[in-house]
Amino acid sequence: MQTPRPHRSGPATAAAVVALVTGGIGAGWLARPSTYPFGATDRVTMSVTHDLPVAVAGGTLLAAAALGLAIAVLAGRPAPGHRAAGPLAAGLAGFFALVMADTSLISLLGYALALGAPLVVTTGIVLACVRGGRWGRLAGAALLLLATVAVLAGPVDPGVLLRFTRNVLHAFAEYGTRLLWGLAMAALAGAWGAVAYRLLRAGRTGGRPGWARPERARRWGRVAALGAALCPLPYAFVRLTWLTPWAIGLDRDIDDPALRLQGGALGCAALIGAVLTVGLVSRWGEVVPGWVPVLGHRPVPVTWAVAPGGLVATATCVAAPGLLLHAVETGGFGEGLRGVAFGLLFFPFPVWGPLLAAAVLAYALRRRPVEAPVAG
């Protein structure tokens, strides 16, 4: 009996659609240069696109669209053409992630979590003190102490909270169009990444390699998760000092209670991220702790950890090239190797992103059953 041909229209169609969108954006920029959001006039300088004129960016997107259409054709053909489509799609995903995308995604996630940080911290204090046992009460006491210091130091009161919220919303409104374009480039990177995953997965003929087995993933995943959890701690520490009278890195000329609260909220967001990263290798990352109402003692769905963890890992990875280029061009973190070291300590995106991605991958490999091989 003849082996049925695998269904390949899905990845091929997706590649064609993404290619047409890519080409449409590039053609639009070239036809109307005033719509180009990047380049030398871009106020967001932590990006590679800040150095790309419209002719280069538009022409590059047209070339990427042509390659994408070629990928769509190859995806519908038998091997070896079909097998070449996956790596090519992965290359386009890398181009959009490392060149066209920037800090927009990580900024959006950071400020979204920062706006919710007061509610998260308050809820954590209450639940930990009431139902968290000895360690929960200890953590709750530490959070309560930090909140008390913040109130006594001055940056936390209803008026300051209102000004802080207005400042953040105003910044999003002012940079709204630019932010959307940065997110659009990240979305194209994600779309090409999804196409590449479908194509590469369809071509896999064997089971999991040794490093992907649950027992092996547990070992290297623990190292990656602990390393990723350490990465945001220096940033969190510096920003949290803004809630105290001993603020680090805050110029007196711009010192303002609302700005202090903004820095403290971002520090809380980074600290929450570090704690959640530890959950990737902790028991409470697999089973909801008993002190959590309603959900206590239930298994944590894999997607609850993989989806947000993968999103943050992607955001930190795509922010890394722009951050490094900005540091080189401006010397914003100081001169020479010392400046580079300080920049990597405060914004460790080039290290943090890959470590977090590895930790999330290890978590998924441990929690999901071994899949049967997929025919190519």
Rank of each mutant, 00 (worst) to 15 (best):
residue 97 A to E: 05
residue 93 A to I: 11
residue 313 A to L: 03
residue 370 V to I: 15
residue 202 A to E: 13
residue 196 A to L: 04
residue 80 P to V: 14
residue 316 T to S: 10
residue 358 A to H: 04
residue 376 G to L: 10
residue 333 F to Y: 11
residue 231 C to T: 15
residue 280 L to C: 05
residue 296 G to N: 00
residue 35 T to M: 08
residue 56 V to L: 15
residue 152 L to E: 06
residue 27 A to M: 09
residue 226 L to Y: 07
residue 246 W to I: 10
residue 346 F to I: 12
residue 162 L to D: 10
residue 364 A to S: 11
residue 169 L to D: 00
residue 55 A to T: 15
residue 4 P to Q: 07
residue 161 L to K: 01
residue 28 G to W: 09
residue 287 V to R: 08
residue 288 V to F: 09
residue 55 A to Y: 02
residue 102 D to G: 12
residue 117 A to E: 00
residue 33 P to Y: 02
residue 174 E to F: 09
residue 138 L to Y: 01
residue 203 G to M: 05
residue 46 M to N: 01
residue 252 R to W: 08
residue 211 W to Y: 13
residue 228 A to C: 06
residue 84 A to Q: 04
residue 190 G to L: 14
residue 186 A to S: 15
residue 60 T to I: 06
residue 266 L to D: 09
residue 85 A to Q: 05
residue 130 V to Y: 00
residue 5 R to K: 09
residue 209 P to R: 00
residue 146 L to Q: 10
residue 200 L to H: 05
residue 242 W to N: 01
residue 333 F to D: 04
residue 190 G to E: 08
residue 122 T to F: 12
residue 218 R to T: 10
residue 273 G to W: 07
residue 101 A to I: 07
residue 58 G to K: 01
residue 256 D to S: 13
residue 272 I to C: 02
residue 159 G to N: 07
residue 19 A to T: 11
residue 301 P to K: 09
residue 322 G to Q: 07
residue 149 V to F: 01
residue 312 V to Q: 07
residue 161 L to W: 04
residue 134 R to V: 15
residue 292 V to H: 01
residue 170 H to K: 10
residue 107 S to N: 14
residue 79 A to T: 12
residue 225 A to Q: 03
residue 58 G to D: 03
residue 27 A to T: 12
residue 336 G to T: 13
residue 193 G to Y: 07
residue 344 L to A: 08
residue 327 A to L: 12
residue 117 A to W: 02
residue 324 L to N: 05
residue 73 V to S: 00
residue 151 V to Y: 03
residue 227 G to L: 14
residue 83 R to K: 06
residue 376 G to M: 01
residue 282 S to C: 12
residue 200 L to V: 13
residue 165 T to Y: 04
residue 338 R to N: 11
residue 49 T to C: 04
residue 137 R to L: 13
residue 178 R to Y: 10
residue 153 A to P: 04
residue 2 Q to H: 12
residue 116 G to N: 02
residue 320 A to S: 13
residue 94 G to C: 10
residue 170 H to Q: 14
residue 14 A to D: 07
residue 306 V to R: 04
residue 84 A to Y: 02
residue 283 R to E: 11
residue 174 E to G: 14
residue 102 D to W: 05
residue 41 T to G: 10
residue 48 V to A: 08
residue 172 F to A: 03
residue 82 H to T: 10
residue 240 L to S: 08
residue 101 A to M: 04
residue 204 R to P: 03
residue 323 L to I: 14
residue 137 R to F: 02
residue 139 A to Q: 02
residue 209 P to T: 09
residue 334 G to E: 02
residue 327 A to T: 11
residue 350 P to E: 03
residue 282 S to T: 13
residue 150 A to W: 06
residue 79 A to Y: 01
residue 322 G to H: 03
residue 364 A to V: 12
residue 263 G to V: 07
residue 48 V to W: 05
residue 31 A to I: 09
residue 262 Q to V: 12
residue 144 L to K: 00
residue 262 Q to G: 13
residue 159 G to F: 05
residue 236 A to C: 04
residue 35 T to G: 02
residue 301 P to T: 12
residue 298 R to A: 11
residue 340 V to R: 03
residue 306 V to I: 14
residue 272 I to D: 03
residue 99 V to Y: 04
residue 348 P to S: 07
residue 297 H to G: 14
residue 371 E to C: 08
residue 68 G to S: 06
residue 168 V to D: 01
residue 331 G to A: 09
residue 108 L to S: 10
residue 307 A to L: 15
residue 145 L to E: 06
